[in-house]
Simulated assay, not measured.
Amino acid sequence: MIEQDSFISHRNLLFTVAYEMLGSATDAEDVLQEAWLRWVDVDQSQVHNPRAYLIRMVTRQVLNWKRTLLRRREEYVGEWLPEPLLTNPDAAEVLELSESISIAMLVVLETLGPTERAVFVLREVFNMPYDELSEIIGKPAATVRQIARRAREHVAARRQRELVSRSEQQVVVERFLAALRTGQLQQLMAVLAPDVTLIADGGGLVAAARAPVHGVGLVANLLVRPNRAIAASALWLNGELGGIIQSEGAIAAVSFVVENEQIVRIYAIANPQKLTKLDKPVELAR
């Protein structure tokens, strides 16, 4: 019972760790299931720090899981985007996880190798000491420090240049969604940056652009078409205000990067297999 209680009490934390390393809630749940099966066979008397032990166990499972995922990604149809999570509006303030779990950040983390991503997440998000990282990764602490430095520089060069306030994000997103609902092309173009990019993920299961679409004209005309009815509403996704869009029987969860009161990047996840976590908020922890 003690073993089970330790795992259950840390489950939200372990899910958050796995999700940030994988970008997929479904795969994170599978990793936790494997970790649970291993944990029930552990001699509890030998575990002095269950939290650290469980994080180490989950991280190793993630790194093993990554080999299968890399092969799966090679066969993926079109652009691959993270699986969105429905989160509580106060998640960003209470957990201070808004940037690290945002779709934009998860997209950046996808450009890291598995080991680099694990080190970055555990060090930068969960503030894990280097000696513990060394044990998890199986490399000397000096090497882990170098990996962490390279990962930080890599992420810094690709992350959003300037974070906007919650109120600015809300105003811009609501203007975008209103323009979609009313089909007002000019209003939509006004809220989009001239060099806006739209990245869609249909996974080959639904219609979606298979390559990024660049430029305000192309993006606006792709989104707003004559005689096309669109339902669009705001939704808290991954700690930020995003939206859910329905049109012609298709559904997409949409996340935005906002700069200078305009949308510079749109992530549209339409793969139905990635929209299964939008029925209730997911509890995250750090």
Results as ranks from 00 to 15, higher is better:
L284Y: 05
E162Y: 03
N88D: 13
R210L: 14
T276Q: 05
V213P: 01
A209E: 12
L37D: 15
Q169F: 00
L198G: 00
D90P: 03
R265E: 15
W36A: 09
G113R: 11
S167L: 06
A211T: 12
A250H: 10
L69C: 13
L95G: 07
D131F: 14
E259T: 13
G204D: 01
I245S: 04
Q44F: 13
D5G: 09
V62T: 08
A234N: 09
L54P: 04
A52I: 13
V164T: 00
V173P: 05
A91T: 14
V282E: 05
L241Q: 02
Y19Q: 01
F176S: 01
E153Q: 05
A92G: 12
E283S: 12
A142V: 15
P50C: 01
S6I: 04
L81F: 11
A92S: 14
E248N: 13
G204N: 01
I103A: 03
M57I: 07
V31K: 03
L185F: 10
I251A: 07
Q160N: 07
A179G: 10
T111A: 10
A179C: 09
E3D: 06
L14Y: 00
Q160W: 03
V17T: 11
Y19N: 00
A285Y: 11
V155G: 02
P82W: 09
R123G: 12
R286Y: 15
V206L: 09
V94Y: 10
S247P: 11
S98H: 14
Q246S: 11
Q187P: 07
A193S: 07
L97V: 03
L205G: 00
P89F: 13
R11D: 09
K139H: 13
S102W: 06
A178H: 09
I101A: 14
P84T: 02
L222R: 10
I103G: 03
S24G: 14
Q170N: 04
E79G: 01
E116A: 06
D43A: 05
I251F: 12
L284A: 04
M128G: 11
P226C: 14
Q46W: 00
D30T: 14
M105E: 08
F7P: 09
Y76Q: 01
M105H: 05
E174R: 08
E283T: 12
D5R: 15
G78H: 00
V213G: 02
R166W: 07
A179E: 08
T182E: 10
T26V: 11
E79V: 03
W65K: 15
V108L: 01
L95K: 12
P272Q: 02
L22W: 00
L235V: 12
V213Q: 03
I263C: 06
I55V: 15
I199M: 10
G202F: 13
R67L: 11
L70K: 08
R149A: 15
S9G: 06
A35I: 08
S165I: 00
E174P: 03
G183N: 02
V155W: 04
V171E: 09
N260W: 12
Q33K: 10
Q273T: 11
E99W: 07
A220P: 11
M57Q: 09
L278Y: 04
R60G: 14
R149N: 12
W80I: 08
V258T: 07
I244D: 02
T197R: 02
L133N: 03
P89M: 14
V164M: 00
R265F: 10
Y19H: 02
N12V: 02
S98V: 00
D30M: 15
E79Q: 08
N127Q: 15
E261G: 12
V264W: 10
L97T: 04
V121I: 15
L54A: 07
